[in-house]
């Protein structure tokens, strides 16, 4: 009986491992391609020998051209794209944190007219992803740009502005956490002469670091992964985000740039993937509140 159970367990492990190998195959393949000196779209799974040519290419270092043998440097500013993406995502995440934390605090702690309506509106509107209003965003930024050049189309400022409209989901997430912190701590602090605002940022904020970190990282990941809005708003090559830049780069010549693309995609995916795997427990908790990765 025990032997039979062990055999079943072993079979299950084998099935799952086979399944995982199938599922994760594209990832192994892309890692192998990035180290393959030829690295065209029809390359074998096992490279003839390992080479860092593609990695040198995307990092802007001199590399040896596979066909002519010349030593060149890439004309595509991959690292600038990556930097742009990180810059935009970090700024968006920080601003988003400020905007949604204060609103969430008000909704969690105060009773005021219009609170129920605000909660309901936030709940409904968070179902609508903002890309549906892409035409409006484009025209609005075009208009703003005539008066404030730093916030128009083809600027990072304009793109960040557009992202800042997505507060509802984060407000809900943070409010839910604030609700679990007992009010009595702040109340006693206020008795001792603390102002409301001091109680907020000296007591409540430090107590809710985990959820704030999750909101910031989630915003970072979603902003980094966004494709449609930057592709509409940004035009100049040096201003593109990683997502748009890499898409244009590989779509222009799919088979010739396959190896370089493989290296670049690992460079871009690894940090995001690592962050995600670290916080996935919290994300699922948050997702069950309502909404999905977007």
């Amino acid at each position: 009986m025990n032997k039979q159970r062990a055999a079943i367990e072993l079979a299950k492990h084998l099935i799952l491992i086979t399944f995982l190998m199938l599922i994760l195959f594209p990832i192994f393949y892309i890692i192998s391609i990035s180290l393959n000196p030829i690295g065209s779209i029809g390359s074998d799974i096992v490279p003839p020998h390992l080479s860092l040519t593609h990695w040198r290419y995307i990092l802007g270092l001199p590399y040896t051209d596979g066909v002519t043998g010349e030593i060149k440097t890439s004309s595509f500013p991959m690292l600038i794209w990556l930097f742009n993406s990180i810059k935009i995502s970090v700024i968006t995440a920080l601003l988003m944190l400020f905007l949604s934390t204060t609103s969430a605090y008000a909704l969690s702690r105060f009773n005021f007219k219009g609170k129920k309506l605000s909660l309901l509106t936030l709940m409904i509107v968070q179902m609508f992803p903002n890309i549906m209003a892409m035409v409006a965003f484009y025209l609005m930024l075009d208009f703003i740009g005539q008066y404030v050049p730093g916030l128009g189309t083809d600027t990072h400022g304009g793109l960040i502005l557009v992202y800042l409209g997505m507060t509802p989901f984060n407000i809900w997430l943070i409010k839910g956490y604030f609700d679990t912190i007992p009010k009595s701590i702040e109340e006693s602090a206020i008795m001792d002469g603390c102002t409301r605002f001091q109680a907020f940022y000296k007591i409540v904020i430090p107590l809710s670091t985990p959820i704030l970190a999750v909101v910031a990282l989630l915003t970072f990941i979603n902003t980094f992964s966004d494709f449609i809005l930057p592709s509409i708003i940004l035009k100049t090559q040096d201003k593109l985000t990683f997502a748009v830049g890499i898409q244009i780069f590989v779509s222009e010549a799919f088979s010739n740039r396959w190896g370089q693309f493989a290296a670049a995609s690992i460079l871009g995916a690894f940090p995001i993937s690592a962050i995600f795997l670290c916080i996935h427990k919290y994300i699922v908790g948050g997702l069950t509140v309502g909404g999905s990765k977007g």
Binding site: A106, G165, T167
Partner: peptide
Amino acid sequence: FMYPGLLTFFLFMVI
């Protein structure tokens, strides 16, 4: 407290 978050929400989502 509500103001900053709701302002950007209004300007870049509702409008």
